[in-house]
């Protein structure tokens, strides 16, 4: 079947079975391989993209469900104001180790800040819960989100526990 989808502001046409996950259309048809495969069951968040501005797991989103919703991926998020700030913070704090999950982390973090520019630690925990980092760079992910938001990055949680 033919699908026309809006990706990173560009209209793209793809031929795919309706049940094909958006992830594989992005990766193997459109060669937008910044979005990663980790689990295929929406457990790890490596495939996080924005669908109409909301984080979505591309591995369980059939291409037929995308419809007219604009899709933004890691390749396009840098043109988004928060996307740009989040990426800059990620680099400044040198968040990544292997880096495989980080596109998904950045997409979730950008969506969080776009909705909530001054997140608390609890907000961060909730928004980032679905994104696994196998290297466990969580300390820096938390700090980088705060840094992008212009908040102090010191981890003060234990003082409240």
């Amino acid at each position: 079947m033919q699908f026309s989808i809006l990706i990173n502001g560009e209209r793209r046409s793809v031929e795919a079975d309706p049940d094909t996950p958006l992830l594989w259309v992005l990766r193997d048809d459109l060669h937008l391989s910044g979005t990663k495969y980790g689990c295929g069951i929406a457990q790890c968040g490596a495939c996080t993209v924005h669908l109409d501005g909301v984080p979505a797991r591309a591995c369980v989103t059939p291409i037929s469900a995308v419809g007219s919703a604009p899709v933004v991926t890691i390749e396009g998020i840098g043109t988004h104001e928060w996307g740009r700030k989040v990426k800059a913070a990620w680099l400044e704090l040198d968040v990544m180790q292997c880096g495989y999950c980080q596109a998904g982390q950045v997409m979730s973090a950008t969506a969080l800040l776009a909705k909530n520019p001054r997140p608390t630690d609890a907000d961060i925990d909730q928004a980032m819960h679905g994104n696994i980092c196998r290297c466990c760079t969580y300390t820096r992910i938390r700090a980088a989100i705060k840094h992008a938001a212009g908040l102090p990055t010191a981890d003060t949680r234990e003082k409240r526990s």
């Binding site: 295929g40 457990q43 925990d125 819960h129 969580y138 300390t139 938390r142 981890d155 234990e158």
Partner: peptide
């Protein structure tokens, strides 16, 4: 998969 092989998530990572 990660539903039964539970890797640590951000809320479990202490200071």
């Amino acid at each position: 998969n990660f539903d039964t092989y539970r890797l640590l998530r951000i809320g479990e990572a202490p200071p």
